[in-house]
């Protein structure tokens, strides 16, 4: 009997002593952490994508709490709502940032951009890009090995087997920029999502001279400068034989889309144009390109429209 009592007492004594020691040790070695870090982390989407440039959501939360002004911080996944929530926690005013989305600036499908050789090395865009100019005559365009798709943490991209190009699923894209960093040719760009996801952009990054670019790819920007002249808002710049539309200045009037002789300028998610059948040939006839070719272009134009629509249907 006494053995049992002694055992119980001894164990209790050990327990109490250990508890006391632990208490003091915990006091002694306590690390102070701003409780707001936890709160902020709670508010973040916990995707740990690194799109903000910090190591995971916790790292971002620490940086946010430390910062005096969080205007320059943006969680690309959560966007404005999350940032305003974070601002509320930290007592900062937050301006609403425009949502952005990844945009592929290359339309060099197998059809538009015939292959001149066959890449047989390790399936990595970076390796191919450091080796040579790629499987086609265009040394700037998409290499089609899908490194961006591998980089995407949100299943927002896939390789289209028909075209050989990656496709961005707009609804899933959180604009974290992982694909932008992954692409060795810098084809993908984060652009303003635009009202109702309507966007106008040059779907080409070819800086070669017009003739070379056109030979390599039917839908390359040849740097003719027509769009620059046409744009009423000075939103288009031409540099190194390549047009670029500044999404902050673009008012989505779509005039550039019509004048582009190679259909390199894309419009997304717009309702179908009414006057298109009449306007397209007139625009085409202005071009110095031979007439039959222009007709081919006009026929091709509707082909691009459905792809744009496909994107939207996919999103829904």
């Amino acid at each position: 009997m006494s053995i049992i009592v002694i055992t119980i007492l001894a164990l209790c004594a050990i327990g109490v002593t250990a508890a006391i020691i632990l208490f003091f040790v915990a006091q002694k070695f306590k690390v102070y952490e701003d409780p707001r870090i936890d709160e902020v982390e709670e508010a973040l989407p916990a995707a740990n994508c690194g799109g903000c440039g910090y190591p995971g959501c916790r790292g971002f939360a620490e940086a946010l709490v430390k910062a005096d002004n969080i205007d320059n911080f943006l969680c690309p996944v959560g966007g404005a709502p999350v940032m305003s929530h974070v601002g509320a926690i930290l007592g900062h005013e937050v301006k609403a940032a425009e949502p952005t989305v990844a945009v592929l600036r290359c339309n060099g499908t197998c059809e538009n951009r015939p292959k001149t050789n066959q890449y047989d090395g390790a399936p990595s865009c970076t390796i191919a890009a450091s080796l040579y100019s790629g499987e086609t005559g265009c040394q700037f365009g998409c290499l089609g090995l899908g490194e961006c798709v591998d980089a995407c943490n949100f299943d927002a991209m896939y390789m289209d087997k028909e075209t050989g190009l990656p496709v961005i699923i707009e609804d899933k894209c959180v604009s974290c920029g992982a694909c932008v960093k992954a692409c060795p040719n810098h084809i993908i760009e984060l652009r303003k999502k635009g009202p109702k996801s309507r966007r106008v952009f040059v779907s080409c990054v070819n800086k070669d001279k017009g003739a070379i670019a056109k030979k390599a790819c039917d839908v390359a920007c040849i740097g003719c400068g027509k769009c620059v002249k046409e744009c009423p808002f000075d939103a288009i710049t031409l540099e190194n034989n390549l047009a670029y539309i500044d999404y902050n200045k673009c008012k989505l009037c779509r005039k550039c889309v019509i004048v582009c002789p190679t259909n390199a300028i894309h419009e997304l998610n717009f309702p179908p144009r009414k006057e298109k059948p009449t306007e397209k040939p007139t625009a085409a006839s202005v071009k110095p390109v031979a007439a039959p070719k222009a007709e081919v272009k006009a026929e091709e134009a509707p082909k691009i429209e459905p792809t744009a629509n496909d994107d939207t249907t996919e999103n829904k």
Binding site: K115, T116, N117, Q118, Y119, D120, G121, A122, I127, L131, Y132, E135
Partner: peptide
Amino acid sequence: TKVLVAPS
């Protein structure tokens, strides 16, 4: 008929 290109 396209030639192959690969790193050495």
